[in-house]
Amino acid sequence: MSASMSTPAPAAPPALVEAERLRREFRMPKGQDPVVAANDVSFRIAAGEVLGLVGESGSGKSTIARMLVGLERADAGSLRIAGADRFAPARGQAARLARARQAQMVFQDPYGSLDRRLSVQQALVAAMRLHGVADREGARRRAGELLDRVRLTEQQGSLRPHQLSGGQRQRVAIARALAVSPTLLVLDEAVSALDVSVQAQILELVDEIRREAGIAVLFVSHDLAVVDEIADRVLVLYRGDVVEEGPAAAVFRAPEHPYTRLLVSSVPGPGWDPHEVIARRREFDAAR
């Protein structure tokens, strides 16, 4: 497989997600330069593919993730999912729901992203009923299947979020996203708040869902090891710019861009020296 996937050939099969030159600036208080969260970011995600989006805090990862699910607008650029323009205003309930079925999101904070008033079961049923599953019995049965799929028991389904652990809550969040049957699942730092063994379980679950349901995944994380584990392709973001793109193995084993090299060498491991990392970081920033 060639590493030059940044410019897809015209004959390439139509991608599920087509993002073209997405741009977004955040205005800062007077006297400060605006922060560019996305600077002409273009990428594609094929059906069933996992695209990793890495970068440090403030690099614009979350802004791009939120654009995909319609929580953030773009100043310029276009975004299509399954051919449908995501930036055209959605008029009416039907259009909103159709858009929701294109992309769902799992948020970073497993404590705040679930409605604390609803039990797991109720949250899943509410999502399905919003999306037109008319009979309560059918919705309940599907909720049971979803719970099974994210490996939660029926008994855990009757609990409310505060009675669950962080990992269990993230499973609920995934089940809630799947309840809508989306074509794309966006995970925004979804395992960053979890401890390592729980992280592994969630990653395995995401991989399984991708394989079985053919759902495309945008996996946003600052944790290179986690992204390396799950992503087919990787996009490296530095202050709103895509500095490197390619298959995960190539990007992490043989980084080309100085920033990617810096990121890869900053990961703690044998022979890791924090002072050296900081010094190299300073050098890099000075050179920009």
């Binding site: 699910v69 319609g70 929580l71 309930q93 909103r96 729901l97 858009r99 929701a100 079925r101 992309a103 769902q104 999101m105 948020f107 970073q108 904070d109 705040g112 992203s113 679930l114 409605d115 604390r116 008033r117 999502a127 919003l130 999306h131 969040a173 809630r176 809508v180």
Partner: peptide
């Protein structure tokens, strides 16, 4: 400001539904 409100938005729920049926009871 809690992310569950964003989650309802991503789900496609209307503003009135989220505000009155979801946020107000909380």
């Amino acid at each position: 400001a809690r992310p569950y409100v964003d989650a309802y938005r991503v789900q496609g729920a209307s503003a009135v539904h989220i505000a009155v049926r979801r946020v107000l009871p909380n």
